Simulated scan of single mutants.
Amino acid sequence: MVDSSFDYHAALSACAQGDPAALQRLYAQEAPRMLALANIMLGDQTAAQNAVHDAFVLVWKNAGSYDSRTGSARAWIYSIMRYRTLSMLRRSLAPASSAPVTPSVLPAYEDGAAGVAAALQQQPDGSRKPVLMAFYNGMNYSDIAARLGCSVAELRNRVRSCLRALRECEPA
Rank of each mutant, 00 (worst) to 15 (best):
A22Q: 09
A94M: 05
A99D: 14
A48S: 07
S13R: 09
A36E: 11
G64N: 08
H9A: 10
S87Y: 08
E170K: 13
Y141K: 01
S161P: 09
R164W: 07
Q123L: 15
L155Y: 14
P171H: 12
Y83F: 06
M88T: 10
A134K: 02
N50H: 11
W60T: 07
L23D: 11
V159T: 15
D54Y: 03
L35R: 13
A108K: 08
R90F: 04
A145Y: 06
K61F: 00
R167N: 14
S98C: 10
A108T: 14
F135M: 03
S5K: 11
M81W: 11
R160A: 15
R156P: 06
S104I: 03
F135C: 03
K129I: 11
A165Q: 12
T46W: 01
D67V: 02
A134D: 00
Y27E: 03
E110F: 14
K129N: 06
M133C: 07
Y83Q: 14
S79G: 12
L58K: 14
R158D: 15
S13L: 15
K129Y: 05
R147C: 10
S92P: 01
L155M: 11
A118C: 09
A145I: 05
A108P: 02
D3N: 15
Y8E: 11
R84I: 02
L42W: 02
E154Y: 13
P130N: 05
S72H: 05
Q49T: 09
I80Y: 08
D111W: 10
V152N: 12
F6N: 11
A31M: 02
A119K: 12
A31F: 02
L12S: 09
E154K: 12
R69P: 00
C162N: 00
E168P: 02
Y27P: 00
T85K: 07
I40Q: 07
D111K: 12
T102F: 02
S92Q: 15
L12I: 11
D111R: 13
T70N: 09
T85R: 04
R84W: 00
A51M: 06
E168K: 14
L132F: 01
P130T: 02
S98R: 15
L86T: 00
K61A: 09
A55V: 02
